[in-house]
Design a protein around this nucleic acid. Structure first.
Lengths: 228, 228, 228, 228
DNA sequence: TATGAATGAGAATTCATTCAT
DNA sequence: GATGAATGAATTCTCATTCAT
């Protein structure tokens, strides 16, 4: 008897699928696709594109392997679908931050915390991005959908910094792109490399108190940098 | 039991291997092993453990595929040997920094610059580490050699910070481990994710002037953070 | 849906397979498995576990090599399946002998003849057992299925001997296990070692008249032993 | 520092080799060959021709792998050499039995006991023979040396039986070849199949008391058969 | 006579993908 | 839409044997 995998809360299944009554898992296109995507996300995040196994995804999703090709065409296209969904969800969340409504320093703090919290709650994204970087972002580059998803944060941060300068609370000359990269780096690197770092420092960096301490640290570093 | 001669600052493939020139069949165990290691480092850095191809390593190294098993036992053991060499070389280089001989703020700057320069010159290390993190550092954890290679930088940074506090040039209460992680993050993330970042910001982050700007930025961020 | 009829007394390769005729690609799991088992039995009996070639089994069975792993997992597990089938069939045949319905001496004679005839008709079993003995019965020992297939003949022979003693036609004190071993030995050794024996005695022991003579001899030896 | 493997007591090294003072194991042709033969005998007995590993033999013998080819030419020729040595030693031992000097029934008993004891003390021979039988005695057949080593026991047993008949202690009409085969079978099968038999009867047939009981049983069976 | 490095032909196993129903 | 069987091209690994010293 087949079971569908739990579906990640981040890239949510469409409301339609969600509203469906859970009956026998037969002949429900939307639901099958979501189950495959969820299983694929896990597998690709865990093993990378090369290490992922189509068989594992099929089994984990509860769908027949043939369905995977039916809906997505190939392993690579499935990988792309996963990437688009996860990456798109993050970009969407960023867009909903409304940083321009905040005081400049609050906006910086908000962004740092958002990045940190997002990665903490959705570590698969980090692994997907790490894998994609090992592929030189070749799928990101090839994706029409994702090419159009430029981070708008560059421009938004530019406005934030400009406002801060005008209010004399932010030092002048900060490159918004490098600022964004650093904000992301402080969280991403921590979550991406917890494994090797824990070994290197003989200190369990996966504990909740360590994580909270890191969050405070990241905010502090970035605020110290932007403040006048 | 084999021992390697002193390892050059970055283990790099010999020019011969790089040009895919077949080694003349000199029966030189050391040379063959080095050629295999060099080729393997490149392949594993490029493709990760799962994506790497033993055949490709053999061909690239100019050695017979059988030699790879003769000397290293299996693909995974070869991967471990590569990791140990690359990781060990970095730790060794860190040890030679002699940060304690510098003024506290100079030491911080020196460390940021060192990390940045090391990754810039040896990007394969980043890719190896990224791959290893996707494996949850399972090989790092399993390696006796590497387990003993705890970064000594935790303690060294602690001394640097203490000295800085005493001289009243460093703010109190900084956690040396998180400081080290942030220093590393600012460089690592940049080099590791240049590919996706360049897409996201439509800006070629691989150009030399961008890289230099990044270096300056990283130093600034960390100094702003530690300064009193 | 195709199904094979009850399996003939000795699992033997279908004539089709024997003639190396490619099965038409009917998608019939049961049939494919049986074809693989039959081909594997022949190969393992011929060459032993180490000498058998997975490629040869695949070709002989008419199935794709991949199917072999699909259904049996590995060469060793396939070997085990073959062993279980062949060994189980013999134990089953033994169980159907109903020795207790016969007069004691008739029962002994019946058992000797049965063993002899079984090995004569199914020489692959001898070769499988010889191979398995060279592996110290490691697969027999590891098989849950086979562990439970203790020969019941120990107890049955015990009853036969007891009845014979009571009737004063069998001498007392005979160990049923050693009796069984000897009965088996006289047939097994002959068929297993015909090759070397024929050389040693410059006498073709594979001829039908030699075989019949041997059968008579074996019966005589065992009856002379048990008779009072 | 290399060590030579212990050399089996059955096929003994030549006296010359034996008299050598044990110095460093360099450049002693005879000794190297004996070490290789001893290691090969163990490996071939354990694994069969197909399962045996040339590397294992070389390592176990303490000799360089190249030496193995230097002295024996190939894996198969080495196997043959092992077979010839082991088989020849048994035939030689048989020849030294001098059965004709004994009373007929004593001669039979002597032969049964000899076979039993020889296999007990030299179980590798059983495994070598079992392996060779799986190869259809192809090496025995091909060996000039072994072809000439017909068992003389056929003729000797014929004389023994004739004498027994004349003395009226042996029943007439016994085929000496089948008698010899049965005598061998009762011991060989027991030692060859102890592994599977122990499993089948849940009884440890490798214990010393079991073995002694078996010896008595074998003598009894054969004497009951030949006696008038 | 001895040694360790090297080789190429296989052998087992894996994997993404397609077919027949 | 869905399923399980089937496929062939890789892919890792093994092995007997030979070469250079």
């Amino acid at each position: 008897m087949k079971k569908f995998a739990a579906i990640s809360r981040f890239p949510r299944p469409s409301p339609a699928a969600k509203a469906k009554v859970r009956l026998e898992p037969v002949r429900d296109a939307e639901r099958t696709q979501q189950a495959i995507l969820a299983a694929a996300e896990e597998e690709f995040a865990d093993k990378g594109l090369a290490g992922a196994r189509v068989d594992a995804i099929a089994e984990q999703s509860g769908a027949n392997k043939r369905m995977l090709y039916y809906y997505f065409g190939s392993k690579e296209q499935l990988y792309l679908a996963v990437l688009e969904r996860a990456y798109g969800a993050m970009r969407q969340a960023e867009r909903e931050l409304n940083l321009l409504d905040l005081e400049p320093l609050d906006a910086i703090r908000r962004l740092v915390e958002f990045k940190f919290d997002y990665y903490r709650e959705y570590p698969r994204l980090i692994r997907l991005l790490a894998g994609e970087n090992m592929l030189d972002a070749s799928f990101l580059k090839a994706s029409n959908q994702l090419r159009e998803m430029h981070s708008s944060l560059g421009e938004i941060l530019e406005s934030v910094l400009a406002a801060g300068e005008k209010q004399n609370v932010v030092k002048p000359g900060i490159d918004p792109v490098h600022l964004y990269i650093s904000i992301t780096a402080l969280s991403y690197f921590y979550f991406a490399n917890r494994a090797t770092l824990s070994v290197a420092f003989s200190r369990d960096l996966t504990r909740a108190d360590e994580i909270n301490e890191r969050r405070t640290h990241a905010v502090q570093v970035m605020l110290d940098y932007v403040r006048v």
